[in-house]
């Protein structure tokens, strides 16, 4: 930072919009900002805990893992790329990996990295497009018929295969598969 960056520095440390989670993460990355972390924590940690409990963890294990997930977010803030994922998506992937490790006690093979790697300076247009698409997806998800939505939720959070869902709900496997397919088609349609 040179001398002229002073005022920029100041404004960067000013208030951030409470729902601009990407700005919170950069604050944690650049300034080790505990206040920004606390806001992120209050929003996401209870959700991560709920996700882990729906996946079969008891309350104590879910609490432990939720804290670990949030600590990982702090340590890996420099890895976050807002042009590739929203903060919610990024936290979901960290929580998902923690679930495989702590609940299922398995390794998770990860795909090779993309050749271009994380961009040094994310393209603002990409960041905006991604945020808009994610908002549209959240909206579309909220508007799904309850029966379709519930099956998607179980497939994500219940940690059940489609045939296990079939055994549990008493619905034929074909019905479950076609409801999930319908739900995904609707979501895709909304995303266009």
């Amino acid at each position: 930072m040179n001398g002229t960056a002073g005022s920029e520095e100041l404004s960067r440390k000013g208030p951030i919009r409470s729902d601009d989670w990407a700005a919170h993460v950069s604050r944690i990355r650049d300034d080790k900002d505990q206040a920004a972390f606390a806001e992120l924590f209050r929003h996401f940690a209870p959700r991560v805990k709920a996700f882990l409990m729906k996946s079969g963890a008891d309350a104590a294990l879910a609490e432990e893992c939720a804290q670990e997930v949030m600590a990982t977010l702090w340590h890996k803030a420099h890895m976050f790329d807002p042009a590739r994922a929203t903060v919610a998506t990024w936290i979901f992937t960290i929580a998902r990996n923690r679930k495989i490790d702590a609940l299922r006690k398995q390794n998770r093979p990860e795909p090779e990295d993309l050749p271009w790697g994380p961009a040094a300076e994310p393209d603002q247009e990409d960041v905006l497009t991604l945020q808009q698409e994610t908002q549209a997806l959240g909206q579309a998800l909220a508007e799904l018929p309850p029966k379709q939505r519930e099956l998607i939720e179980r497939a994500y959070f219940g940690d059940l295969s489609h045939s296990e869902i079939a055994a549990e709900t008493g619905l034929p496997l074909g019905t479950i598969k076609s409801r999930i397919r319908l739900a995904l088609e609707r979501l895709r349609h909304e995303m266009k």
Partner: peptide
Amino acid sequence: FDTLGGAMLEECGSAELDAGALDATM
């Protein structure tokens, strides 16, 4: 699908944390 997972995380409700969870995490 990861994006969908993120959207589900936002919407799937929340579980109450232990008292002092934030301090413990810090």
